[in-house]
Amino acid sequence: MKEKLEQIREEALRQIREAGALEGLNEVRVGFLGKKGKLTAVLKSMKEVAPEDRPRVGQLVNEAREQIEKALEDARTKMEQKLREARLKAEVIDVTLPGKKNRRGHRHPNTIAMEEVERIFIGMGYEVVEGPEVEKDYYNFEAMNIPADHPARDEQDTFYVNGDILLRTQTSPVQARVMEKGRLPIRMIAPGRVFRSDEVDATHSPSFHQIEGLVVDKNITFADLKGTLAEFAKELFGEDTRVKFRPHHFPFTEPSAEVDVSCFKCKGAGCRFCKGSGWIEILGCGMVHPHVFEMCGIDPKEYTGFAFGIGLERISLLKYEIDDMRLLYENDIRFLNQF
C-alpha cells in the first residue's frame, strides 16, 4: 500500500513537472485528486485495509495529497507569472508617441493679468466692485476734483454722449460711487474698461482697461500706500522687485505719485522693455484729495485714504512682450492660443 501511494505520488509530481500549460495542471488535478482520481481511488479502497492500519494509511494518503496539492499550486503560480511576464512583454508601447490632446481654450492675456491683480488684492482684504462704463460727467470728472474748465479734461480726450453723460475715461469714478454710499472702512479694487479718443495704433487703443484701488479708513498714511503697492509689486513681479515712488500730480489725490518697478525683464540692468533705465512705470497713486472726500460726504479731518490706478494693458503687454496693442482686439486664435 505504501509503495502504491509512493508510486502515485511520484507519478503525479512527474506529470506536474511535465505539464506545459494551466490546462495540463488541471488534468493532473482531476487525474489524481478528482472524484475518479488515482489518489481518491486509494481512499475509496480504505475499507480493504485492516482496521488497525487505517489511521497510518490514512495519514500517508493525506500526506501524498498535500504534497501533490502544493506542487500543483507552486506550478500554477509559476506558470501564471510566466504568462504575465509574456503578456507584459507583448504590451510594450512607444511612449514617445504624442499624448492625446483635449483642445482647451485660452484666456485673454488681459484677463490673465486682471485675475492675477484681483487675486493679490483679494488676498489683502479688498473687495472687487464694478461701476458703469457709460458714466455721468459728475462721477468721471466733477467728483474727481476735475471741474468743467480743468486742463486735465483736455488730457483725457473724452467720448461724450451728451453734456452730462460720457464714456468713462478712467475707473476712478467708481471711487466716488463707493465712497458716497458711506460704508466705511473701504478696501476695494475696481477693474474695468475705459475709453479715450485715441486713434488705433500699435501703442494706442480707444478702449483699454484700468484697475482702480481705494482704501479709506481712520489713520491711513502715505507710508501705508507705499507699503501696499510695494507688496503688490512683489506679488505680481517677484520677490526681488524694487519700487520707486516719484512725485506727480493727479487732480483727485494729494500728495500723488507715479510708481516705477525695477524692470522685471532685466532686473534693473537696463533692456529694451525699460528703455535702458532699469525701471518701468506701472501705476499712478496718491492720498485721496480732501475735496474728493468732501464731495462724497466723508470728513477729511476724520478719515484719510489712498487710491491707485493701474493700466492693465501696460502690465499685460509688458509681461507677455506683446508689441502691438491691436493684437488684443483682433482675436486671432494664433495669438490667443499663446496664453
Partner: peptide, 12 residues
C-alpha cells in the same frame, strides 16, 4: 517708511 494699513480687517 513702508507700512501696511492697520485698523479693522476686511474680507476680500
Amino acid at each position: 517708511p513702508t507700512t501696511l494699513p492697520s485698523g479693522e480687517a476686511t474680507t476680500g
